[in-house]
Write a protein that binds this DNA or RNA. Sequence first.
DNA 1: CAGAACTTTGAGCGCTTGCTCAAAGTTGAG
DNA 2: CTCAACTTTGAGCAAGCGCTCAAAGTTCTG
Lengths: 198, 198
Amino acid sequence: MARYRVGLETRERILEATRTLLAEDGIDGVTLKRITTVAEVGVGSFYNLFDSKEAAVFEVIRQALDAVDPHRGSSDGDTLAELIDAFVSFMTGPSPIARIYLQLAGLGLTDAAIAQRVLRSHRRRVQRFAAACQREDPALTDEQAREQAQTIMAALTGLGLTALIDPAFDMRAHAERLVVGGGAGSAPSADASVERSE
Amino acid sequence: MARYRVGLETRERILEATRTLLAEDGIDGVTLKRITTVAEVGVGSFYNLFDSKEAAVFEVIRQALDAVDPHRGSSDGDTLAELIDAFVSFMTGPSPIARIYLQLAGLGLTDAAIAQRVLRSHRRRVQRFAAACQREDPALTDEQAREQAQTIMAALTGLGLTALIDPAFDMRAHAERLVVGGGAGSAPSADASVERSE
DNA sequence: CAGAACTTTGAGCGCTTGCTCAAAGTTGAG
DNA sequence: CTCAACTTTGAGCAAGCGCTCAAAGTTCTG
């Protein structure tokens, strides 16, 4: 839609503005007026570059979902610890994308289309985590690894949500505790819940 | 505001309609028009009973937050397992309230007022979990118990979110795995992540 | 049964929303 | 330099929003 240099730049300014507003004020806070004001662009220009407001928002969201799973395919040899560390960094880092991602998950609770997008991204990540689990313990069946990964991912998502709502929450510390005991060891021995060191 | 019997009944119908719409379509889906249509009430009647649309929504939300922590004060002797079981039941049960609660948490990411309400409720629950942790292991310091409870709560929230988005997700099974290994044993022994049975 | 207190009603107000469109301006290949 | 292709612009539209208000109806006390 944009073919001249200026057009591409304007497009970027609009996406940047949309991204900022999405992270700051949530999806409800994103209005055409605000986008065009922040991007310093006329309403008409916006519609020259995007089919609708939704199109711009979805473009930002698509980028956000991709960002959760950055180098897919390339570095497949990550350890579980590295994957978790990367996820924690993503959640607690300065980028506004994590906020968008989590809010999106919340909206997925009542919007099937959004749920589908979020789930696709989520499952892709679960698969990478499962692979890492199996790399650390080759004895695990595919199913076991997948379930383990699911638990870790879900829990990490919850930790991220808590961390972004409560600034005092130290996500990294909690994530470490989570995995040392729970994620890796799916031991069905009930004793584990009684015996504890320290 | 409502003092006659009919008025109180109307008020209940409105809250019920608001609750349903909130759970089905999320906060964005709740419009005055829809509330009054579903409740079979004129717009004017609504404003005779509530100061604003927001007031009705907040009333439902307040009830939702209370529902997460049902019998506070009364039965303080719950075991950790019981508390977790209750939370899982709340999340996976038929009530629409869990959906509202989680969506609210998502919206708390960009709305300070909502965040405050959610956090207050969350912390109250963490406190009960911490007490249960300490009951099971009196050796734990207050701080240790609180951190352990925080991890469990955050993880459970994440599991609940995943379960509500993905119907195929078995929250109870994952919650059990989570706690057997991770929640109770904050063992810093790295070995735990290597040793696993089955 | 009188009548004050409470409830119900929906047309319509003011405002915001996403979006259109015709006219004017800018870009860059030939 | 030419000129078609692309970009910019904001007034204004239709639709939807939360909400008001005066008139009519209902409830329940004394």
